[in-house]
């Protein structure tokens, strides 16, 4: 009997996850500070989107990026600039953010992805720093003084107004996050996903069996940049203020850490890592005060003791619990 329950859960796990995400506000509403927790979950959703893209790049294609905050920032600033400087619709901002990130990533992919390993890490780090300097010095971004961004409204409804509180923005963010998660899950189980894993395992072997390495690497780089851009746009309208340091090296490392802790070669791991690292500092005051110390320690321990991240540990635990072998994919 219980085995069959496990089976059902396993069969429909993504749907169940969607249900849980969608019903959380109903549960949290009962708490006095529920609105605050929703605001934390919105941030967790935004980070999840970036980290899903990052995991596609790192976990599946095996390409590191120490400059992903730049794409996040590019998305955020596109949205901010389109709405504030030109007074256009925020949806145009979203479109621009996706388009711009895709184009920029496509142009950069060719030269950058020729580099491997540590050289790639350094090049992406340098790229991130150059973008950061641009964000802090260009007139259009508001420079280091920052840029105020308008709230997001759909058909005249402001999503995160005082009356509507956080609920609408929560649903907005997480429906996009779930959609992108679904796409990513499909992607990794498709031909592209298999090609990426082949590249990760051995580029030479992949090449010899006819995988067009450059093409797939470019594709996944563009996809992960677009994910970061979408997250940036959502972030811009949520936070309503953009400041260059939010898109610097610290942010890139924060995103990487989420991926590592959750598990780099797993889409679920991305969401897990993003959720944990966004919520912990908000919930534990110790973490908030000594955040960098705890961050560093967690990162080191995670790398040494669970290099595959928490997602792998949990799925092993699940297998033990349900007592089943290697079913499912």
């Amino acid at each position: 009997m219980i085995k069959r329950v496990w089976k059902v859960i396993e069969q429909f796990h993504f749907l169940l996850f969607c249900l849980l995400v969608l019903s959380l506000p109903l549960i949290l509403r009962r708490f006095e500070a529920g609105d605050y927790y929703l605001s934390v979950l919105v941030l967790a959703g935004i980070s999840s989107i970036v980290v899903i893209g990052l995991n596609l790049l790192m976990g599946y294609a095996g390409q590191i990026s120490l400059g992903h905050a730049a794409f996040f920032g590019l998305g955020a600033y596109s949205s901010g600039i389109v709405t504030i400087r030109y007074g256009l619709s925020p949806w145009l901002g979203f479109a621009l953010s996706i388009g711009l990130n895709a184009v920029v990533a496509y142009i950069l992919a060719e030269p950058i992805l020729k580099l491997k390993g540590h050289y790639l890490a350094m090049a992406t780090l340098g790229l991130g720093m150059i973008f950061l300097t641009l964000f802090s010095n260009l007139a259009i971004t508001g420079g280091s003084e920052g840029l105020s961004v308008a709230k997001l409204s759909i058909l005249g409804y402001v999503l995160n107004s005082r009356e509507l509180k956080e609920v609408n923005y929560y649903y907005f963010t997480w429906s996009i996050a779930l959609l992108l998660m679904h796409l990513a899950l499909n992607l990794v189980n498709s031909r592209v996903g298999r090609a990426l894993r082949a590249i990760h395992a051995s580029e030479i072997a992949a090449h010899s069996i006819g995988v067009d390495i450059a093409k797939f690497k470019t594709q996944v780089f563009v996809i992960s940049a677009v994910y970061a851009g979408v997250a940036g746009s959502i972030f811009a309208h949520y936070s309503t203020f953009l400041c260059p340091p939010d898109f610097g090296l610290t942010q890139s490392i924060r995103l990487l850490t989420m991926g590592v802790i959750g598990g780099m070669s797993s889409i679920w791991g991305a969401v897990l890592g993003a959720a944990i690292l966004t919520m912990l500092p908000q919930l534990l005051d110790v973490f908030a005060e000594y955040d960098i110390l705890v961050y560093g320690l967690v990162l080191i321990l995670a790398i040494i003791f669970m290099p595959q991240g928490m997602s792998q540990k949990i799925s092993l635990g699940w297998e033990k619990l349900t007592g089943q072998g290697s079913q499912g994919s």
């Binding site: 590191i64 320690l297 080191i300």
Partner: peptide
Amino acid sequence: VISQIMATIGASIFFRG
């Protein structure tokens, strides 16, 4: 390579902290 890079980054954050 990725875990080596992340580990030294972790160390740098840990030293700072």
